[in-house]
Design a protein around this nucleic acid. Structure first.
Length: 387
DNA sequence: AACGTCACCAACCGCGTATGC
DNA sequence: CGCATACGCGGTTGGTGACGT
């Protein structure tokens, strides 16, 4: 096995090897950062530093690409070396919090605040807890403004609407629900709402069964969108959730295709979701909803403003959600799925017997879509080579 | 009564990013 | 500018109680 490591960067930059590695990295990119298969298929053992340095030093040829290489790749070396623990695991208590610990933490924070340093906080008050654990306990349980008790119908609807437009951005969703924490909302979704909406069935629609790489949350969102859309309107105006995809969505988005060379398209993380502390402020920053893709070369940049976000949530039919959630009409998932499949059949007549779900999803990814489907990613890749 | 299964939810873990030195 | 550290987030796990067989 040829090892390209930190020490060999100099060698790696020698032209011949650099070309090889460039090809390799493009392959990595196209392979959706499957470093394992990379090693298998290409016999390379890539370290994060090598990749990092390569992009930076490859003479601008691929200067756009660094941010486009999934960050997981850069973590490889970190994994090899072992990640430094956030605290001394041996001297830290785990598991449920005792009332005494709660009292100590609460009293201290109420009097002194967090001091901006969660790591130091447990030491200050003599708690044998990890700083992260303290933070979580405070945010999810001890904070005075935490709302207890069941979720209201209005909250249910809001969660569904937001989930549809944002996906599993629990902190942002929770920020729209005063007193609720992201953990609460997430747990509630996973244990209650999901079942309420989709029933116990967790399989994707039949026509998507052959798309194993589509993440569950994406399928759910498509299903939810399907539930809320008449199949006919969907056919004539296919516009599933991707247009409202938030920035920096890490979900993988294959453009469903039977073309084996393009099976593993992915959506690049092309923006940073600045949702930090949104949950504590109780608001969503406009920038958190915008789509920034400066590093990917302009053509993919789509800005979404807060107002468009409002429009997104507003244009979801509240009554339809209400129907789904509270069974105001027979709209169990199974029923809807049938309904939906009827729509599929209808569209098949229009589109022909296309066995893949190309039309079903890819049509939603039109030029103005913030989602970067495989094809656009490919296009980008070729643009890079042209640079 | 004993055991198994399910639902719930608190807590943990790992990752990506921000920040400070 | 690069590195180390801290923070915040989302996915996952594990403990516990309720319920069914």
């Amino acid at each position: 096995m040829y090892f390209v490591g930190v020490q060999e960067i100099g060698r790696a930059q020698e032209e011949e090897e650099a070309v090889t590695i460039e090809a390799l990295m493009v392959q990595v990119w196209e392979d959706y950062y499957d470093t394992e298969s990379l090693k298998l298929h290409h016999g390379f053992n890539i370290s994060a530093s090598c990749v990092d340095s390569f992009w930076e030093n490859a003479g601008g040829k691929v200067k756009l690409a660094k941010r486009q290489v999934p960050f997981g790749l850069f973590r490889e070396r970190e994994r090899e070396m072992g990640r430094a623990p956030c605290c001394d695991k041996a001297n830290v208590k785990k598991g449920p919090w005792s009332p005494e610990e709660d009292a100590k933490l609460k009293a201290y924070i109420e009097e002194n605040g967090t001091g901006g340093n969660w790591i130091a906080l447990p030491h200050k008050i003599g708690l044998k807890r990890c700083g992260k654990s303290c933070r979580l306990r405070w945010l999810n349980y001890l904070r005075p403004d935490i709302k207890r008790g069941g979720f209201t119908e209005e909250e249910d609807q809001r969660i569904c609407s937001l989930y549809m437009s944002l996906g599993s951005r629990w902190s942002i969703i929770a920020a729209q629900l005063p007193g609720r924490t992201d953990n609460d909302v997430k747990n509630y979704w996973n244990t209650k709402l999901q079942k309420k909406l989709f029933g116990k069935r967790r399989e994707p629609p039949l026509h998507l069964n052959h798309v194993p790489t589509l993440p569950a949350s994406a399928l759910e969102r498509m299903q939810l969108q399907g539930l809320l859309s008449s199949p006919f309107s969907f056919c004539s105006n296919p516009q599933p959730w991707p247009k409202h995809q938030p920035p920096g969505d890490r979900s993988i988005l294959p453009s469903i295709s039977t073309d084996s060379t393009h099976q593993a398209g992915f959506q690049m993380r092309s923006g940073i979701l600045k949702s930090e502390s949104a949950s504590t402020r109780g608001e969503v920053e406009p920038s958190a909803l915008g789509f920034h893709s400066a590093s990917t070369g302009g053509s993919l940049s789509v800005e979404t403003s807060t107002s468009s976000f409002d429009a997104v949530t507003a244009d979801l039919q509240a009554d339809e959600l209400d129907d789904l959630l509270y069974c105001n009409h027979p709209s169990s998932f199974a029923a809807h799925q049938e309904h939906e499949l009827a729509g599929v059949d209808c569209c098949r007549e229009v589109y022909g017997e296309k066995e893949s779900a190309d039309w079903w999803i890819a049509d939603g990814f039109e030029d103005e879509s913030p989602m970067v489907s495989w094809d656009s990613a490919s296009a980008l890749g070729s643009q890079e080579h042209d640079l």
